[in-house]
Amino acid sequence: MIEMKDIRKVYQMGKVSLEALKGISLRVEPGEFVSIMGPSGSGKSTLMNIIGCLDTPTGGSYFLEEKNVAGFNFDQLSSIRNQKIGFVFQNFNLLPYATAYENVELPMLFNGKPGKKRRQRVLELLEMVGLVDRQAHRPTELSGGEQQRVAIARALANDPSLILADEPTGNIDSKTGQEIMGLFVELQRQGRTILMVTHDMTIAAYSERTIRLLDGHLVEARQ
């Protein structure tokens, strides 16, 4: 699914260059559930951004489903994000003026899925996360847990094989967090690959494998 070799990322800040990733090699098999841990500044977010095709590495190679995406341009990466990857953020990142329905629909609008199929898919996903009756609500009218469930439904809109979650339970209470994690486990059971950044050991415990980052290095890969 994911194969990274000697990935480096250098940020140039004026005359100072900051090396956020210092040669990461990582392999994730299809259907794996991997959590990424590490202290602040260890490079977790940078790694997630590169895996999520939101950023490009300075060096190294990154194969996503056998495609080397390291050299892709913006629009090619957009297509990859749209088709292959679903994002779940800590702060949900829902469009505030759009309803739950419209938020879930959005990724399909960017790839031009026909209206009827789109509608069917939105309702199917809202059904899955248990929010069909709240489809006309805006994010401000939903609880944190509900918002995150809308975000998960949105992440699945184009049926991606890879789900990237950045502290998905960070902004919700622990009970709701467990429900959310239940959804992730279900997604893995469906055969999707899940990569999740977290600080929380109990959340990381839902994954099959945890990798640790420290100062831009991969220090441990625990099975």
């Binding site: 999520g52 939101l54 913006f74 629009d75 957009s78 297509s79 990142n93 469009l95 960017f110």
Partner: peptide, 16 residues
């Protein structure tokens, strides 16, 4: 800005 970022993450191309 933030909304633009969200759309990009979800696959919006530059032309969108």
């Amino acid at each position: 800005t933030r909304e633009i970022g969200i759309k990009m993450a979800l696959g919006a191309k530059r032309r969108h």
